[in-house]
Write a protein that binds this DNA or RNA. Structure first.
Lengths: 189, 189
DNA sequence: TGCACATGCCTAAAACATTTAGGCAAATCA
DNA sequence: TGATTTGCCTAAATGTTTTAGGCATGTGCA
């Protein structure tokens, strides 16, 4: 009897690939077992539950995304940093839709604390160092940027901007121009 | 044998309530049958499939949201219209998290065409009439607004802004201030 | 009022996903 | 080599999805 060489890490990576192929919601322990050609029960030595699998895929995706964002941010500032960071999000979502959907998977407090979520917030704040914002406006701006990036990418992925002019790439560019202008001219009431 | 009085419409409405209580992803035909105290198979006279149920809940939620937005928009213009519209989204999502999640459910082309999606886009454009934007900037701005509203509400619903200062209401207000300022001062490259 | 028919909910059953318990064989190590 | 750990197995319980076919109930018509 040849062993398949299962491990939690291999399962999670394969689960992430599966998510990109069939959608994050369609990732099941059964489908993963078929992929490795083993019995379903065998996976339960490596995974606590179906939820556990999804949470681990989400954590993997958050790490990957944070890694890419960190790399893109290195040596950049101001609008250059803003667009590089934003493009990482958008490109990742389009290249890995299942993984990107996984990053939106609700995490419990424990998993959230162990996640790369903190790195993401940290990097957004780093971008804002290129603009002249003080607290609490900086936090408002962090939330706005997170909302726009996530919102735009989600709507685009759901097909919201396809089959209409102007094309999505152009809107993306102009939206980033607008955000840059807004951050340089943040209104104080 | 007393009949339960099932109908597609009653099932979909009950499904929407169930979504608000247990989460949209947890809505199943089985759970709905339990709620009506009938056998699962009975529902399949009224619903094509589990997917059909979810799609119908999504369409219901989109209609409800569009109705509320239309009412809020009546008689308002400029920033007043912008904030009223945005608040409808946010309030709806907080009052009906399951239904709001349903509005993010991917629709096939046919369902999307029959949905209230067009009304939403139309209303966003109506808001922009209070600002001085021409095509294609108007479309870019429609996409930006949709992204911010959806993104902010999603992140807030996922708990992203809780347990941190300043509180989410304040950021929401300041984000809308910022969007208003941006729309009045839209950059042209 | 009595009958015909459409409809509403039923039972039954197959297919598939989740999860636990316990067992044999392979890999690892003393 | 023998002991132990590990990996994948079989078996089985539980729950969801979906289809097929049946009986009873309510409606409409003579």
């Amino acid at each position: 009897m040849v062993r398949a060489g299962l491990s939690t890490e291999r399962l999670v990576r394969a689960g992430a690939e599966l998510a990109d192929e069939v959608g994050f919601e369609q990732v099941t322990v059964s489908a993963l077992a078929r992929r490795f050609d083993v019995k379903v029960a065998s996976l339960y030595s490596h995974l606590k539950s179906s939820q556990d699998l999804k949470t681990r895929i989400a954590l993997l995706a958050l790490e990957e995304l944070a890694d890419r964002a960190a790399e893109a941010l290195a040596g950049r500032a101001g609008k250059d940093a803003l667009t590089a960071f934003a493009d990482v999000y958008r490109d990742y979502a389009r290249a890995h839709p299942g993984r990107y959907a996984a990053t939106r998977h609700p995490l419990d407090a424990e998993a959230a604390a162990a996640s790369a979520g903190g790195r993401h917030a940290q990097m957004t704040r780093a971008i804002l160092r290129g603009y002249d914002l003080t607290e609490p406006d900086q936090t408002h701006a962090v939330r706005l940027l997170g909302s726009v990036f996530h919102g735009y990418v989600s709507l685009e992925l759901a097909g919201g901007f396809s089959h209409s002019t102007p094309d999505s790439q152009e809107s993306w560019t102009r939206v980033l121009d607008a955000l840059d202008a807004l951050l340089r001219n943040w209104p104080t009431p």
